[in-house]
Nucleic acid binder design. Sequence first.
DNA 1: TTAAGCAAGTTAGCATGTTAAGTTAATCGC
DNA 2: GCGATTAACTTAACATGCTAACTTGCTTAA
Lengths: 145, 145
Amino acid sequence: MEQNLSLNLHVLTARLDRAADRILRAEHGISYSRFLALTLVGELGASTQRTLAEYLGVTEPSVSRMTTVLAADGLLDVQPDPAGGNRRRLSLTDEGKRRVTSIRQEFEERLAMVVAHSGVPYAEYAEHTARLLATFDRLEREAGK
Amino acid sequence: MEQNLSLNLHVLTARLDRAADRILRAEHGISYSRFLALTLVGELGASTQRTLAEYLGVTEPSVSRMTTVLAADGLLDVQPDPAGGNRRRLSLTDEGKRRVTSIRQEFEERLAMVVAHSGVPYAEYAEHTARLLATFDRLEREAGK
DNA sequence: TTAAGCAAGTTAGCATGTTAAGTTAATCGC
DNA sequence: GCGATTAACTTAACATGCTAACTTGCTTAA
């Protein structure tokens, strides 16, 4: 069984994402992807599309399309960066802030309960996951691309 | 940081998947999704589309489209199940078998090396991941849907 | 034995991921 | 100062996920 880590991670995450998406759509009328984007802008200070793409681990075209939609929905403010360059400056609208804060706490508690149910030590698993992610970042940067 | 497990899992898996996909496409001319499907048919005995969908953690329409493509590419054999019903019986073609076996060993070793690099204990992390997945399966089944 | 129901699969339409190839705005070297 | 480079973003085309609704083939019950 131990040679199936990549497969299990893939499937576990796919199911968590699907469940999160179902809950958010049903109870809050927003997709998980969009909620993550708003969260990162609002709480981790992703202030350009490039930065947001890095935080999310997706490419710039994905972010470009998503910010267009979120702006059209009135949740995200997208402005040319006053500091110059071709950057966009991202920030939440009042409505965007309201959505994120009303959802976040309750949603994370729900996920933590699922983990607790499994008997897996949350803190340790979270720490290992974070460390794998950091290592992956480093290896990819070292590999040039 | 510990309240970001869902986000970190999402991002870690997205990056692992992307890297796996890049390697497989460049060196073996096949996508990661299709490789996973062939692997599950070849090694875990996913013999109907329904079963394959469960193993992959995706829905039936996704599998339906993929089996059509894999059959057209000559890697997968899709036949009406002789036992009757509306089932399809899935099996690898000779070319499909050749592709899977030539890729699998080398590819898994590569992933294990990345994990080793991070200092995270492979066996423990793999076991926790498997347990989370099993718990999730159980909870979803209990929840009716 | 025929209608109702169920399980497996397909089709259609959309969301969101990708790569490849442009555009835009600042910077750097001559 | 002007052409080449670079960074951030966009556009286009495609891959692969989803849900909703349909078809197909068996099973079950009146």
